[in-house]
């Protein structure tokens, strides 16, 4: 395409932005860069669709949408004064499960298989909120089965709070580390570009490989996180009615999986592009000091994906 891009340098052509710019000393404006930046602008609008949806749905969420005692979006959480029981020491797990399972089901929380037993064993089980006098009767029954219980009054939230294990299953520690990892992949990417700008092709290949590896680690951690949320753990009813955090569990879950999922898909796309770059870069002389725009363009995309994650980590996990 080089022949076409040269056109506007011919006479009478001050109109083209490219013809004037290199002389002023900015980076040269190439069709590839223009297209990539426009593509990134479309990506901004796409993520605005998703993140904006999350922001307004969260802002408009009614104050009783989430609670420590009831599944998400349960109207029961609107009644103040209810009390639940945290089962600290399970005693006879089977019997306790048999006793409290109907209570959960009456509130729309259906546990499958041995999920409820696991929840009780881990000490995460909280019974749904009841009138205080009914709770006392239940506490007596549970104690007779050898369990130690603690009363817990109803707390409601418009949205799950960070670090609140009753309503929010996300691990900030794990994701903070993962954010660290993605930022590292961004710097290796820019170092790959800097290397080829100095003409050092072998160093560039190394940095590209490093970016691919670190990016894959990020993606791997995200897959692990998804697996734990969706299948690995059993969560108390305040997080999900069936004990697993899945896209259908709550509006919070829907937003979380859609945003991070599409970000993850973009990371996967970036890794594939980087892999193609790396494989083509194995051919000596494919990318040189004078000719390396594919590295630059994929780099732009990769940093943009990193930038989106910086925002997602803040608005989804930390806030």
């Amino acid at each position: 395409m080089a022949h076409e891009t040269a056109t506007a340098l011919a006479p009478d052509a001050p109109a083209s932005p490219r013809s004037a710019k290199p002389l002023q000393g900015h980076s040269p404006v190439t069709p590839g860069k223009v297209a990539m930046w426009f593509f990134l602008a479309t990506e901004v609008m796409f993520f605005t669709g998703l993140i904006g949806t999350y922001i307004v749905l969260r802002a408009g969420s009614p104050p009783t949408a989430y609670s420590n005692l009831f599944p998400p979006a349960s109207a029961k959480a609107e009644r103040p004064g209810l009390v639940g029981l945290r089962i600290e020491q399970p005693g006879d797990v089977e019997a306790v499960a048999r006793l409290i399972r109907p209570l959960y089901e009456a509130h729309g929380a259906y546990y499958e298989g041995h999920d409820l037993e696991h929840l009780i064993e881990q000490g995460h089980a909280i019974t749904p909120g009841l009138e205080p006098e009914k709770t006392e009767a239940l506490a007596a029954q549970l104690r007779s089965l050898g369990a130690t219980v603690e009363e817990e009054s109803l707390h409601t939230y418009a949205w799950p709070l960070p670090y609140d294990t009753h309503t929010n299953p996300l691990s900030i520690d794990l994701t903070a580390v993962n954010t660290f990892i993605l930022i590292c992949s961004s710097v290796t990417m820019v170092l790959a570009l800097a290397a080829i700008q100095r003409g050092d092709a072998s160093r560039m290949r190394l940095w590209l490989l490093a970016t691919i590896v670190i990016g894959s680690v990020f993606l791997g951690v995200q897959v692990y996180e998804y697996r734990e949320l969706m299948f690995g753990h059993v969560y108390p009813p305040g997080i999900s009615a069936d004990g697993h955090f899945r896209p259908s569990s709550s509006l919070f879950a829907s937003c979380f999986f859609t945003m991070t999922g599409f970000h993850g898909a973009h990371v996967a796309g970036g890794i594939i592009s980087l892999l193609i770059l790396f494989l083509t870069a194995l051919k000596p002389g494919r990318y040189t000091q004078a000719h390396h725009s594919p590295i630059e363009l994929v780099g732009l995309y990769w940093h943009f994906v990193d930038l989106v994650w910086i925002i997602l980590f803040t608005v989804v996990y930390l806030i």
Binding site: M1, T30, G32, S273, L297
Partner: peptide
């Protein structure tokens, strides 16, 4: 990105 490869050489 893939398809742009090869068309994005700078001048």
């Amino acid at each position: 990105l893939g398809s742009a490869d090869g068309n994005i050489e700078p001048v």
